[in-house]
Simulated assay, not measured.
Amino acid sequence: MIASGALLAAFALQFVFAAVGAFTQPAEDGSYRLHSITGMAVMPALCLVTTLFAALARAPGRVIALTLLPFGLVLLQVLLATLASAFTGPSGASTPLGLTIGGLHAVNGIIAVHVVAGVLREALKPAAQPSMAGTSA
């Protein structure tokens, strides 16, 4: 539950870090540094830790699979960002294809947040269910 909550916080902060990069004036190479570090190191590590904890907690296979989905979406994010940067014009200016791929990067980020919210909901379910230990049959 703590790992999935930290993962959701990291995904939410990614939007803040992207905005910091977008609104930094003048724009420079390091404008997206926080966004990049979080996306390339922190989030993948938290994804794997969340999956590990789900397996150690003996969560149902469906839940463990759900915890792996954000890791795949993070890998897709890296691919989309790389492709968006690759599709620039000869002068380094944006192209319609590069901008479209960049837009897909944002959409994938939104989808990833919703998936991680689902992971957190699944992690909270056992805590919300009443314990059977104190009841007699």
Results as ranks from 00 to 15, higher is better:
A54T: 00
G118P: 06
A27E: 03
T24S: 08
P70C: 09
Q25H: 06
R62V: 11
P44M: 02
F87T: 13
H114C: 12
A86E: 15
A106M: 13
S94L: 06
V116N: 00
M43E: 15
L73P: 03
G61T: 03
A59R: 14
G30P: 00
S85P: 01
V74R: 02
G89E: 02
R58L: 05
L99D: 15
I101T: 12
M40S: 10
T50Q: 05
G102F: 05
L56K: 12
G72P: 10
V107S: 08
L46Q: 09
H105K: 03
G118C: 09
L56S: 05
A81Q: 05
S85V: 07
L69R: 01
F87L: 02
P26L: 04
L104G: 11
T38Y: 04
D29T: 12
I101W: 06
A93D: 14
N108S: 14
I37S: 01
A59Y: 03
H35I: 10
L73W: 06
V49D: 09
L76K: 08
P90G: 11
G102A: 06
G92D: 10
G72H: 06
T24W: 09
G89Q: 09
T24L: 10
V42I: 15
A106D: 12
T24D: 04
P44Q: 05
T67H: 12
F23Q: 01
T95Q: 09
N108F: 04
G98M: 02
T24N: 09
L83F: 10
L80W: 10
P44I: 03
I110H: 02
L83N: 07
N108A: 14
G39R: 04
V49N: 04
L34F: 13
P44D: 07
A86I: 01
L83W: 14
L76Q: 08
L99F: 03
L80F: 12
I111G: 03
G109L: 13
G72M: 11
T50E: 14
G102Y: 14
T95M: 07
P96D: 10
A84E: 12
A81L: 08
D29N: 14
A106I: 15
I110V: 15
A65N: 00
A22T: 12
N108I: 02
L34S: 13
H105A: 05
G109P: 04
F53Q: 15
P60M: 05
L48H: 00
T67F: 05
T51W: 03
N108L: 10
V115L: 04
V74P: 00
